[in-house]
């Protein structure tokens, strides 16, 4: 079997297997729709609400991506500060850990109160807050563990700190950065949905989920979960593709 075919076939086989198992489990246990919908119940919902699914997915998607973009910029900046200055690292680390430990569900109502009515902004903010931590940590570790010889090679020729960062530190940190980005992308996605569901404002897949809940449409709720999973997979693999392009050199030849 060719490599490309296997990469496509393997997940397909597993997805079909799991859906079949799900269908069978619901049927075998004779579960009513309001306890567990089966895959075959979801198809009518997708068909019925396909335009809603597209619109809401887009709302969730763009706000996640903007939040993640913000997390990349701010996270990289914080990581750089912590990576280059030991003083900043020791000072900021406990604060970051504490900030990261606050459950974001508790932050949602506060943010909604501070920036009342700014739904898009609030959602982006939560997506950002939940996802910048791994990026900041990975960049700071990548920079602070740079072997001194790398620096000396350029410094002995009279290179500036910026040149050293641009030519060596930054590219060398890319594999760690993308490792963190894979975690962050999922987190940002969770952040967006958190805002959409905990502070309902009529936007995103979270809103569709909520309307399913209110009207007791359980298959719709399950359908939203599937759509969320699909979106999450899409985002994740976009990051993987970017990683291939920008940090493909870090993959060892087999």
């Amino acid at each position: 079997m060719s490599d490309g075919l296997r990469k496509f076939l393997a997940p397909t086989v597993f997805i079909i297997g799991i859906i079949a198992l799900w269908e069978w489990a619901v049927w075998y246990n004779d579960l009513p729709d309001f306890r567990m919908a089966s895959p075959s119940d979801l198809i009518p919902r997708f068909v019925q609400f396909w335009d809603l699914f597209l619109i809401k997915s887009w709302e969730t998607l763009w706000r996640t991506v903007v939040g993640l973009g913000l997390a990349v910029v701010v996270g990289t900046l914080i990581g750089m500060i912590m990576g280059f200055s030991r003083f900043a690292r020791e000072g900021l680390y406990p604060i970051l850990v504490g900030f990261n430990a606050i459950p974001k569900a508790t932050v949602v109502p506060i943010v909604a109160l501070i920036f009342v009515g700014q739904h898009d902004f609030n959602t982006v903010l939560i997506a950002f807050m939940i996802s910048f931590f791994p990026i900041a940590v990975s960049v700071s570790i990548g920079l602070s563990t740079l072997e001194p010889e790398y620096r000396d090679i350029l410094r002995s020729l009279g290179a500036s700190n910026f040149t050293i960062f641009w030519k060596i530190a930054l590219p060398k940190t890319l594999p760690e950065f993308f490792g963190a980005l894979k975690v962050a992308v999922t987190l940002a996605f969770i952040g967006t949905n958190l805002m959409e569901i905990v502070s309902p404002h009529g936007r995103g897949l979270g809103d569709l989920f909520d309307s399913g809940r209110i009207s007791g449409d359980y298959p719709l709720m399950f359908a939203v979960l599937l759509a969320l999973a699909a979106l999450g997979i899409l985002l994740f693999y976009v990051v993987v593709a970017l990683e291939r392009i920008f940090a493909g050199w870090a993959e060892r030849p087999q």
């Binding site: 010889e149 790398y150 000396d152 090679i153 350029l154 020729l157 009279g158 060398k172 050199w249």
Partner: peptide
Amino acid sequence: PTVGMAFQNPVLLEWRTILQNVLLPLEIV
């Protein structure tokens, strides 16, 4: 810039080809 250095750890930049690695000092001096 009239000094050249090499260490026990060859510290080649993995994302560059060997040629690009060898040419690195000329990007500085």
